[in-house]
Design a protein around this nucleic acid. Sequence first.
DNA 1: TATCTATATCGTAATATTGCAATATAAATA
DNA 2: TATTTATATTGCAATATTACGATATAGATA
Lengths: 110, 110
Amino acid sequence: MGATKTEYFTDQQNAIAVIAKALGHPARVAIIDYLLRVDDCICGDIVNELPLAQPTVSQHLKELKNAGLIKGDIEGNRICYCIDENTLQKLQSYFTDISSVLEKKKNNCC
Amino acid sequence: MGATKTEYFTDQQNAIAVIAKALGHPARVAIIDYLLRVDDCICGDIVNELPLAQPTVSQHLKELKNAGLIKGDIEGNRICYCIDENTLQKLQSYFTDISSVLEKKKNNCC
DNA sequence: TATCTATATCGTAATATTGCAATATAAATA
DNA sequence: TATTTATATTGCAATATTACGATATAGATA
């Protein structure tokens, strides 16, 4: 018990859940926000932007990377992270689909 | 240690995280999918649609409700759940914002 | 009223997440 | 080469999540 039963759900459902889960922590939302604000990709100071210790930030970055939401290249001393637009696109089109279904339904029963 | 430090982040960041977290489990994505497929709001058999025990489904429904993603009315013996479009709208517009920022940036450095 | 049916809650075990100090790694620089 | 700087990894404690059996609740129905 305790572990998510991913094998019982569809690939699509699991894929959406993985991406959503990665965004399910304010620090990770803050990281995405920061990467959006920064010009180009000269990152390297994400740690200073967050109210968390360096290992904690590193861990959150790892999770965002595992979920495919960001990608990073080694650049000398530093790592340059930026948003992976493809993955965000996936989530966005999922919501677009939902919206269009809801649009057709127009059920106001609740 | 161990608890998320929500007080360190903005209301917006926390709000997005709460909604995303609720979608961060395939069973809950499956529930949303099911509510989208069902005509009207004559639910009442969500449990049979999922490969999980009834208390587990009930718990997932509670979390979706707490996050504002679904709403439910008591209808006699049953509870009629349906999607709360406003909350989904919030997430969707968040992604739309992100997309428009990315569109302007066009940074291909990673 | 007794029973059935649908859902919620409680209690608890298994597992996962969050956060950080300590330490490791590796490139840059003195 | 020694030091500095940026990031990752390890190890661990605190907390949260996931799942479900047992039980409670409450409307519907016999």
